[in-house]
Simulated assay, not measured.
Amino acid sequence: MKNFQRILLSLIVFLMFLTACNSRNNEENKSSKEINMTIHQSSKQGVTADESNNRDSQDPTSNYGGADAMEDIKIKLTIKDEEVIVNMYNNPTSKDFLSLLPLTLTFEDYAGTEKISYPSNKLSTEEAPSGSDPTIGDFTYYAPWGNLAIFYNDFGYSNGLIKIGKIEYGIENIGNISGDFTVKIEKMD
């Protein structure tokens, strides 16, 4: 009976050890994935992982007027027969974009997170923050590449990303589109 108890106790200790090791491996794998994602995001912007991790943690859009919608300035994105309405923010990049309207652009998917397009002109980055952390529905301008980006999934902080608006409704019409698609962009009255 004592042998049975010793074997059972040994088995319990062994299982606890395996559980602890597995938990540690999962944490290391998660940490490794987070580091790789940070490096991937940072390399997209041309900075090192250390520079990305040392960025200012406060929301840079608050210093740029990104949190404030321009009074009654909205744009309409027409995709096939569906409409997406965007409240525009009050900042120089947003105002520069509005000066280009109306536009018809072709968007494509990028990384299963955003739809991107390249307007013919680069937009102003005057007074822009060093970057931002986009959320679902953000209408943005990625200054290093000169592209617009509409986020239909969360992404993470990106250097050079400037929020220029927020989708009021219709985000579900963006994320479900596969392949390239044409968007007519115009100011609303």
Rank of each mutant, 00 (worst) to 15 (best):
T182Y: 00
I167P: 09
R6F: 06
E51S: 11
K166P: 00
N63G: 11
G131T: 13
D96H: 15
D72A: 12
D180Y: 02
N53R: 13
N3A: 10
K122N: 15
E168Q: 14
N176S: 14
Y157R: 12
E108T: 13
M88L: 15
I177N: 00
S117W: 03
N90Q: 14
T61W: 06
E168V: 10
D72L: 07
A149E: 07
N173F: 02
L15K: 01
N121R: 15
S23F: 15
E126A: 13
D81R: 08
P60D: 08
G66C: 09
S99F: 07
T182R: 10
D189F: 02
E114R: 01
S31R: 14
G175C: 00
E127N: 15
S23H: 05
S42W: 04
F139A: 05
A49N: 11
S32Y: 11
E168R: 12
N87Y: 08
K76A: 13
N26S: 06
L18N: 06
K163P: 00
T48R: 05
N25A: 13
K2C: 05
F139K: 02
T48C: 08
N87K: 12
T104W: 03
G46I: 03
Y157T: 08
N36G: 03
A20N: 04
I73L: 10
E83W: 04
G175E: 00
T104E: 15
S117Y: 04
L101F: 07
E114Y: 00
I164H: 06
T93P: 07
Y141S: 12
T106G: 07
N25F: 14
T78E: 11
E82L: 05
V13N: 04
T78P: 06
T182H: 01
Y142H: 09
E82C: 02
E127F: 15
E27P: 03
S158G: 08
I150W: 11
N63E: 13
S52V: 07
L105T: 02
K95F: 01
G46W: 05
D56M: 06
N3M: 07
K30Q: 14
I75C: 06
G175H: 00
P129Q: 09
I164W: 03
S99L: 01
E168S: 07
T93Q: 04
T61E: 14
N90T: 10
A143W: 09
D189K: 14
D72I: 03
M88Q: 07
D72K: 13
